[in-house]
Design a protein around this nucleic acid. Structure first.
Lengths: 213, 213
DNA sequence: CGACATGTAATGTAGCCGCAATCTTTGGCA
DNA sequence: TGCCAAAGATTGCGGCTACATTACATGTCG
């Protein structure tokens, strides 16, 4: 089935990778950049939904479509609950799968809009949770705010005053290197977690986040 | 839009009825026999999701696909939560809608029991019953309300005021750490029951429920 | 009367965050 | 190229405060 699907995709000039196991898929998801992920439930080394849950727990933002031979309601509900974005029962027409993939892809940006992604960093403004290289890293409130602000403009300079404004909102806090201290602490966490991004200072102006050298 | 859709369906020999209001749709659903129902969210006499909720509460078994101009996640989640079986953001390709309708039809009748599931927690808003790791755990009214509210937005921050509002509805109750006390009691029950989720505080803002570390 | 729910208040506590002292880097300038 | 002042980086420390917990009083229902 995978072969047929790959062939159909290739014919439409869709780029696709294929692996057979959950372990491989997990590895690919960590390093690769994909628009959408298609996952069978029954896989040689386990249950596909477990991977979905794991990816979602790590805030993996890419839409996931789950294929299953089990068309029953229960399983469908499980699929959606586990964090999949769409669900398709086998047997299915290739055409339908393609339509759904297009739909997911179109919706995709909207979905990942809720995440701020850059390199292997992912910020979820809803839960104030930050994931680096696939695992959640805790950031205290102020540090989180600084990093979120930077992540909203990757590769672009954010002025000191912008940052201070974002972090201290209304509270009047002026005069100290508090911001610098936060930056420093953030940096430490970033390297520690193996982030593929770094924060650079722009003298007399502010900071920016960019891909690591 | 309805006209275009009806035309497309007719061309494929699909029988379809069309009404414009929630009231009419409700009436049709009561008497007619349909394989699937397509519902817009914005309707002249109200919000489509309310009809979905009402139908589901009556155990109306027919799959429902909801159309919406609002493609955001919130709305999508709301849609699924309300008991809809599929969700499609406008604008969409007619082809895609048709594919989804076929899929729904093939899957057959679905009663989307709208449990709120997260980790090994399950909340049934209908019976106000909470299960943790498969067994029912008793929660008194206020605690239940707090937990249900959190479970409606897993992984997302729920503000203190939201929670207070949810728990104390209209009753004016202000000024105390009553909420904190409830949270504490809930936490105790959660760990005692071996929940795979935990409630975290977000300083100065509120709480969120998320997968246990 | 007893069990339980729930608000209140006292007390405990973690950990954030600002400060400041010290070290490092940067860029202007001769 | 080399020097220096200023900007930035880093780090330990301690106070503060929002949150956590617990006990207790009150209320409610059987």
């Amino acid at each position: 089935m995978a072969r047929a699907l790959l062939e159909a995709l290739r014919r439409r000039d869709v780029l696709a990778d294929h692996v057979r196991t959950i372990a491989d898929a997990d590895a690919m998801a960590r390093v690769g950049t994909y628009d959408v992920l298609v996952l069978d439930r029954r896989l040689p080394d386990g249950e596909g939904l477990d991977l979905v849950a794991a990816l979602r727990q790590r805030k993996y933002p890419v839409p996931i479509l789950v294929l299953t031979a089990l068309g029953s309601i229960d399983h469908r509900v499980d699929g959606l609950d586990s964090g999949a974005d769409d669900y398709l029962a086998k047997p299915f027409a290739i055409e339908e799968l393609l339509a759904r993939l297009r739909a997911l892809q179109r919706r995709g940006p909207a979905i990942s809009d809720k995440y701020l992604n850059f390199g292997n960093l992912s910020v979820d403004p809803r839960s104030n949770e930050i994931s680096i290289a696939g695992s959640v890293v805790e950031f205290p409130r102020r540090e989180y705010l600084v990093l979120e602000t930077l992540m909203r403009r990757p590769n672009r300079i954010v002025t000191r005053s912008n940052l201070i404004e974002a972090v201290y909102a209304l509270e009047d806090e002026i005069g100290s290197n508090a911001l610098d201290a936060h930056i420093s602490r953030i940096r430490k966490k970033l390297v520690q977690a193996g982030a593929a991004a770094e924060i650079r200072a722009v003298r007399n102006i502010g900071y920016l986040i960019r891909a690591k050298a």
